Amino acid sequence: MGGPIDGSVDGPVDGLADSRLRRLAVQFGKFGLVGVVGLVVDTAVVYALVFGAGLEFFAARVPAYLAAATTTFALNRAFTFRGAADAPLHIQWAKFLAANAFGGVVNYGVSVGLEAALPVAEAHPVLAVAAGSLSGMVLNFAASKHLVFKGA
């Protein structure tokens, strides 16, 4: 009597799960917004180094990734995972880079692979950079939440 048609019973455990899921979804959304800022930084550095300094795309991706990762670290620390246990800034930054290294390798591999294989990505590097960023996003979110910004 009083339960949903499917026979399940709503209770405090369901409410707790719903609130945790909502919080996770909000954090993931914030992480995605921060990622868009990181994508802009990443792309700007790639374009500056490829079209301004004459570097090859594969070489430009390394400093561009580091610039974007540093930007997203600062924004995620202040915005997405605010309230996490704070470690000293330089230690937390190093943990962020280390924890996101696998996602960074995936990001780099996808972007360089697309740029090398697709003429449209070679002509418009932002496409390769964006595909690389998206490919590493879920891995980086999990690593950031559970290894770097614990308790947020």
Rank of each mutant, 00 (worst) to 15 (best):
90 H>N: 10
60 A>M: 07
101 A>M: 01
84 A>G: 11
57 F>H: 09
106 V>M: 00
61 R>G: 02
111 S>Y: 01
53 A>M: 09
90 H>C: 10
75 L>G: 08
111 S>M: 05
108 Y>R: 00
44 A>Y: 02
55 L>E: 05
107 N>V: 00
81 F>H: 14
85 A>I: 14
45 V>H: 03
86 D>L: 14
53 A>V: 07
87 A>Y: 13
55 L>V: 05
92 Q>L: 12
42 D>Q: 04
58 F>V: 13
37 V>P: 02
81 F>Y: 14
111 S>T: 04
38 G>A: 05
36 V>D: 00
46 V>G: 02
81 F>N: 11
49 L>D: 06
76 N>G: 15
64 A>C: 09
85 A>N: 12
39 L>P: 01
66 L>H: 10
76 N>C: 14
110 V>H: 01
64 A>W: 06
64 A>E: 07
59 A>T: 07
90 H>D: 09
73 F>N: 08
65 Y>G: 07
67 A>L: 06
88 P>I: 10
99 A>S: 13
42 D>E: 05
87 A>H: 14
73 F>G: 09
55 L>H: 09
62 V>C: 08
103 G>P: 00
42 D>H: 07
72 T>C: 12
70 T>G: 15
69 A>V: 08
109 G>L: 05
73 F>H: 12
47 Y>E: 11
62 V>S: 08
37 V>M: 05
75 L>S: 10
65 Y>L: 07
105 V>F: 00
92 Q>H: 10
